[in-house]
Amino acid sequence: MVENRPILKIVTHLILIFGIVIVALPIWITFVASTHDEARMLQAPLPLLPGGHFFENFTKTLFGSGLAGSEVAPVWRMLLNSMAMAMMISIGKIIISLLSAFAIVYFKFPFRMGFFWLIFITLMLPVEVRILPTFEVVANLGMLNSYWGLSIPLIASATATFMFRQVFLTIPDEMLESARIDGAKPMRFFFDILLPLSRTNIAALFVILFIYGWNQYLWPLLITTDTDMTTIVMSIKQMLEAAEQSPQWNIIMMTALLAMIPPVFVVIAMQKMFVKGLTETDK
């Protein structure tokens, strides 16, 4: 729409700026809090301008033992754990979903629709619903306190399977037939044709799944007892509850800030493909 109404322009901008302030203020406060020392953070009023302790807090948080007096892993370790979990979940989900969508769309086998509905049903069973049996299984398999235990139960994914099924259904049948005449066997067709054609969708899904994995809270809380396996999202909560101390806001906020960086980075890096993957129809 091209319009030329100055007042409307001002109003729309005001609304936008207001929205941005609402979204950005907590992040700003997080940042400001991470730049002051511990003592300043306990005084009122809350500082609104950055102080001079940013690098001090940064090294202390990232490489120190985090919170003084509590037994938590250093934050770099938690970042690593979170990263490993998020990557394993998103890549695992993408591989499993691609393969199952490939099977459901391109192969005729007995009970195909049965399997389809079976996958569909898992939509109604997120981890939170099946948490006890899943814990039992993971524990019996000896996967507590491991990356496998953190990621595998979260990998099965109906949504991603559906999305890929939808993507595959938009690819004309002639593509498959043409590949068959060219002499491509099923897996070759998968790698040479299907995979490149769903590249943008894979990227879009990766962004969503990475954030999903990164933000996991309940499941890691349950199956990790070893401090070396804590993820960063759950550690923030633990820091708040550190025994017999007033919360060290500067360290906690620095941790929160560090926890935000990887998802933001993923979104920014893949934004272009993300948008393309969700909107592109040209096949």
């Binding site: 004309p172 002639e174 037939e177 043409s178 590949a179 005449i181 060219d182 054609l197």
Partner: peptide, 29 residues
């Protein structure tokens, strides 16, 4: 199998592989 019949087919919508160049399209088989 179609590939073993020594035939080539031209489809109504051409069914060119969109992610390959013309050269790669022709060379794929």
């Amino acid at each position: 199998e179609p590939a073993d019949r020594d035939i080539a087919m031209v489809f109504q919508n051409y069914a060119l592989y969109p992610h390959m160049t013309v050269r790669e399209n022709m060379a794929y088989g």
